[in-house]
Structure formats: C-alpha cells, structure tokens
Simulated scan of single mutants.
Amino acid sequence: MIFKYLSFSISIVFLSFIVGMIITALIRKTNFYNTTLSNLNFIKSEMINKIIGVGIIKWIVKNTFFKFLNPKLKFDRKMNISDVKNIRNEMTKSEIDHLFAFIFVILFVIATFYKQKYLLAFTILFVNLIMNLYPSLLQQQNKRRIGKLLSKFENRKQTN
C-alpha cells in the first residue's frame, strides 16, 4: 500500500513540475515576479540549511540523473559576469517553478487530508518537500553564493 501511495505521490510531483513551469512562464514578465518573487530568501543561515539537509539534496542533484534536468545551470570557472547573471536568472526561474509546484501539490495534500487519508497525505507531503521545496531552497542557497561572486566582480570592476 505504501508503494502505491509513493508512486502516486511521485506522479503528482512530476506533474507539478509542468504546472510550476507554466505558471512561472505566465507571470515572468510581471512586476511581481521581478521585484518580489525573484528576491525570495526563506532561509538565510547556511547552518540551518545544513541542519535541515539541503546539502544532501545538493549531492543528489549533482550526482544522479537530476543533473541532466536543467543543463542551463552548469557553472564554469571561465565564465564572464553576464554568463553568471544569466545562470542566476535561470536559478531564479527554477526556484520559482519549484515553489509554484510545491503550492500546487499542497492543494492535493489538503484535499487528501480532508478526505481523512492521512497516510497518503503524509506521503504526498513528504515527496513534495523532497522534490519541490528542497530544490527551491537549494536554488536560493546557490543564488546567495552567486550574489557574493557578483559582488566580487563589481568590487573588482570599481577598483580598476
């Protein structure tokens, strides 16, 4: 029974990826996206990220088939500042995709909980956390790191 719930949960989450991409594409040119959503930062502390296990998700993304899902997020040491800014924009898009996907699946969790199917609701929630919320937190962490790198570029540029 748990296998059935797990496979259903994974299916819903993969469907949510598409929903997240569609919603992001629809609002990407809006002021709300550019001012509010693109600057989200839920967890600013690297220590909290480490405690909750964002590093584990980072390892999974880097060392499994997930690394092939968004090839635009490849980072190379020989990149110039505009390449780094483009990667940051792609990370922002990916982060927002996952957040909308997370919200979409939460609606399923609420409906399932309301129907008193608690084990199924918990299973969907767990898979949603791992496959939508954690990748979004990972993108936020990476954006902070890129922000520091861009600051160094800007400081170097100002001193020259």
Rank of each mutant, 00 (worst) to 15 (best):
F42P: 08
I43N: 01
I43K: 05
K44N: 04
S45I: 10
M47V: 08
M47Y: 10
N49D: 06
K50H: 06
I52Q: 01
G53L: 03
G53T: 03
G53R: 02
G53Y: 07
V54W: 01
V54I: 03
G55W: 00
I57H: 03
K58Y: 01
W59T: 06
I60Q: 14
V61R: 10
V61W: 14
V61A: 13
N63Q: 11
F65A: 10
F65S: 10
F65D: 05
F66C: 11
F66E: 12
K67Q: 13
K67T: 02
K67E: 14
F68Q: 06
F68D: 04
N70A: 14
N70C: 15
N70D: 15
K72W: 15
K72S: 15
K72M: 15
L73D: 07
L73Y: 14
D76T: 08
R77C: 06
R77V: 04
R77T: 07
K78S: 13
I81E: 02
S82I: 02
K85P: 07
N86G: 04
N86I: 01
R88A: 02
R88N: 02
E90S: 15
E90P: 15
T92K: 02
T92E: 05
I96Q: 09
I96K: 08
L99E: 12
A101T: 06
V109R: 11
V109W: 15
A111G: 09
T112G: 11
Y114S: 10
K115L: 13
Q116A: 10
Q116H: 14
K117L: 12
Y118F: 14
Y118R: 11
L119I: 14
F122A: 03
F122R: 04
T123H: 09
I124V: 04
I124Y: 00
L125I: 05
F126W: 09
F126R: 08
F126G: 07
N128M: 06
L129P: 09
I130K: 00
I130F: 01
I130C: 01
L133A: 14
L133P: 04
Y134G: 10
S136G: 11
L138E: 05
Q140D: 02
K143P: 00
R145W: 06
I146D: 00
G147Q: 06
G147S: 03
L149N: 06
L149W: 05
L150G: 03
